[in-house]
Design a protein around this nucleic acid. Structure first.
Lengths: 338, 338
DNA sequence: CGGCTGGATTTTGACGATTCAATTCCCGGG
DNA sequence: CCCGGGAATTGAATCGTCAAAATCCAGCCG
C-alpha cells in the first residue's frame, strides 16, 4: 500500500536489508550480480528512500532553513538562489521561509525548523539581538546571520551598509544636491539604520546640506509610491531635490509617484535606490542603486554554515563583510548648479 | 550534548517515557502533579520534539510541498500566503519551492519532497501532463494542481483562463481597438494558451479586428519591457493600439517600455494585464488587469489536499474552477473612435 | 586436507517518539 | 478484609535506515 521500504526491496531481490542499504550507500562493495537484482527490485517496486528514517538514524538532517524578510523582493530570491546553488553541491535541501518582517511569523518558522532538526538556519532576522537566536544556537542549531553583522558568537555575512549610505550620499552631494531625503524603515532594522547613518555622516561633513528622514513600516513598492506622492506635493522651495531609498522596491514606487505628480527624474528629483535588483535597470527611468552581491551573500552564508557543521568543535565564528558598489544610472545623472 | 530526547526528560522528571509522551499528546490524562514535574523537566533541559522521529513513527508527515513557477511574482506569493494560512490551522508546515519555470528544477524539487514523504504536494506544473506527476500519485503522494485544470484523476484548483482572455478581449474591442497584441509565453503553458484562446475567440467573433501574437520565454518585467520597446518601434500604421499581456509583470515592463519610447498610455496604447497584483494598482499608470483570487486559490488547494489526506479511500478528485474579474483602470480607459 | 584470507552478505541493535496492552495504585462498597 | 474498578503510569514493540560486528564461503597455500 504505502511506499515500499528497504525491507520489501530486500525480500523481492532475495537479499537482506543490509545488502540493499549497502547498495544504496556503498555500491562498490556489492557484487555486480546482486547489484543488478537489487536495482531491478527497486525499479519494480518504485522504492524511494525515506528521508525521515535516514535523518533519525543519522542524527543529522540534510535540510537547511532560510528565513528571509520578504520573498517578493528579488534581492532575497537572488540571495536564496545563491544559497541553493551551494546547497545543491552539498546534496542538501533549502527550505525557504518568509517572515514578512513579522517577528511572530519569524518565531513560528524558527520553531518549526528546530523541530525538524535542520542542519542549520540562515536568517535575515527582524532583530538580530533576539534571545531566541542565541537560545537556538545553545540548543545546538547553527545559525548564520545574513545581510546583518553578528556581534557575538555567530557567523554572519553582510555588506557594509554604512559605506553604502556614504556612497549614495557622496554621489548626490557631488551632483550639487543640497536638500536630500532618506527614506526607509523601520529605522530599528540594523540595515536601514546603517544606511541612514552612512548618508548622515557624509551630509554632516559637507557644508550646507540638509537631510530629511522619512520612515516607512514596510519597504515595498506601494509604500514608496505613497511617500513619493506625499513629497512631490511639497512646495518646490522646501521639497528635496534628491532621494536616497533604503531599497529598490521603495525606489521604484517612489519613481512612479514622481511620474504621477509630473515631476521629472532626474531633473526635478534625483533618485538612488539600494540592492540593484534587475528591475532597477529596467525601470522607466533606469535607477541608480547601491549594489549588493545578493547571490554571493547567499552562497557565502551557506559556505559558512557548511563549514561550521563539518568542523564542529574547532569552528571559529566569522563575520564576512562585503563592499557595496554604487551603480550610477539615469535616475541620478544630472548635475545641479549650486 | 545534542538536544535531549524524551528519554532524558523522563529520567529528569522521574517518570517513564510513556508519561512524557502522554503529557505532550494527551495532557488531560496526566495527573496535575506529574504534569508539573514533566513541564519543569522540559524547560530545564530545553527539550524540543524531534519531528523526524514523530514522522517515522506516525508514518505521515506534517509538511506540504508547494512548488511554484516564480517566487518573485506576487501572484504566487499571495497564493502561498493563502495556502500557508490554512496549513497553519491544520498544524502543518508549507515548504515553498521555486521551479523558475524550469522542468529540471521542478523535478529535483519533486524528488526531494517525495523522499521527505511530504503529506502532499501543491504544484503549478510546467507541464501538467508530465508522467512524473502521475507516477508520484501512484506511489502514494497526493498532488493538487494549482492554477491549472486537471483532466484525469487529480484534484485541481484553477481560474477560467479562457474567460479571462474573453473579458480582456471584449473590453478592448468595445473600447474601439481594431489592432490588438497578445503577449505571453511559452505558449505551451496551458494557462497562457487558454488566455490566448479566449481573446482569439472573441476577436474572431468581432468584425474587422486583427490580433497579433508575441511569444516570450519567461514572463517577467525585463521581458515585458523589451517587447514593449520593440512594438513601440513599429510604424504607427501597423502598430497595435492595445495590448493584452498574460501576466502583470510582463504588463508592468511593457508599460515602462511605452514610457521610454514616448508613447502615452492609454491614448497611444491601451494595456490590460493579468493577475491584478498589488503593483498593478500602484503603477505609474494604474493597470487594468484580469483579477485572479490568488489567496483563495492557495487556500482552496490546501483544502482539497487536506480533504484528500483525511478521507483517504473514499476521496473523489475534484476540479474547482473560479471565475476571473476584469478590473478596469486608467491603462485601458480610453474610447477610441473608429 | 586443514587452515586461512578476504570478499560478500547477513544479523543485530540503535535513533526518538508514539501507542497500546499490561501493571500498579488507591478508594470505596460489600 | 477483600475485591472491583477507575485513574495513572509503565514497558515493550514499532516505524525505515544504517553501520558495526558477525557469519558465510570459495579459493589458495603449505
Amino acid at each position: 500500500m504505502g511506499t515500499p521500504s528497504i525491507k520489501e526491496v530486500a525480500r523481492q531481490a532475495g537479499v537482506s536489508v543490509g545488502t540493499v542499504s549497502n547498495f544504496l550507500n556503498r555500491p562498490a562493495i556489492v557484487a555486480p550480480a546482486t547489484r543488478q537484482r537489487v536495482q531491478a527490485s527497486i525499479d519494480a517496486l518504485g522504492f524511494v528512500r525515506n528521508e525521515a528514517a535516514r535523518h533519525l538514524r543519522a542524527g543529522k538532517s540534510r535540510t537547511v532553513g532560510l528565513v528571509v524578510l520578504d520573498v517578493t523582493n528579488p534581492f532575497f530570491t537572488d540571495l536564496a538562489e545563491g544559497a541553493e546553488a551551494l546547497a545543491y553541491e552539498h546534496d542538501t535541501v533549502v527550505m525557504l521561509c518568509n517572515s514578512k518582517t513579522d517577528p511572530v511569523r519569524e518565531g513560528h518558522h524558527l520553531d518549526q525548523l528546530e523541530q525538524q532538526r535542520v542542519m542549520g538556519i540562515l536568517i535575515t532576522p527582524f532583530d538580530s539581538t533576539d534571545p531566541r537566536l542565541t537560545a537556538l544556537v545553545d540548543r545546538g542549531t547553527p545559525v548564520v546571520l545574513v545581510d546583518r553583522t553578528a556581534d557575538r558568537g555567530l557567523c554572519s555575512v553582510s555588506v557594509d551598509d554604512q559605506l553604502g549610505g556614504r556612497l549614495a550620499g557622496n554621489h548626490l552631494i557631488e551632483a550639487g544636491h543640497r536638500r536630500i531625503a532618506f527614506i526607509g524603515g523601520p529605522f530599528t532594522m540594523q540595515q536601514v539604520a546603517d544606511r541612514k547613518d552612512g548618508i548622515t555622516a557624509v551630509v554632516a561633513e559637507a557644508d550646507d546640506v540638509e537631510l530629511q528622514y522619512h520612515e516607512v513600516d514596510v519597504m515595498g513598492v506601494v509604500e514608496g509610491r505613497a511617500i513619493g506622492e506625499q513629497i512631490a506635493a511639497l512646495p518646490a522651495r522646501s521639497r528635496p531635490t534628491a532621494a536616497f531609498l533604503a531599497n529598490d522596491l521603495l525606489a521604484l514606487g517612489f519613481l512612479q509617484g514622481m511620474a504621477v505628480a509630473g515631476l521629472r527624474v532626474p531633473r526635478d528629483m534625483a533618485i538612488v535606490g539600494y540592492d540593484d535588483i534587475d528591475f532597477a535597470r529596467a525601470a522607466a527611468v533606469p535607477l541608480s542603486s547601491v549594489r549588493q552581491p545578493a547571490e554571493l551573500l547567499g552562497r557565502s552564508a551557506m559556505e559558512l554554515l557548511q563549514e561550521e557543521v563539518e568542523s564542529a568543535e574547532r569552528h571559529r565564528h566569522r563575520q564576512v563583510i562585503f563592499q557595496p558598489d554604487l551603480i550610477v544610472r539615469e535616475s541620478s545623472d544630472f548635475k545641479r548648479r549650486r
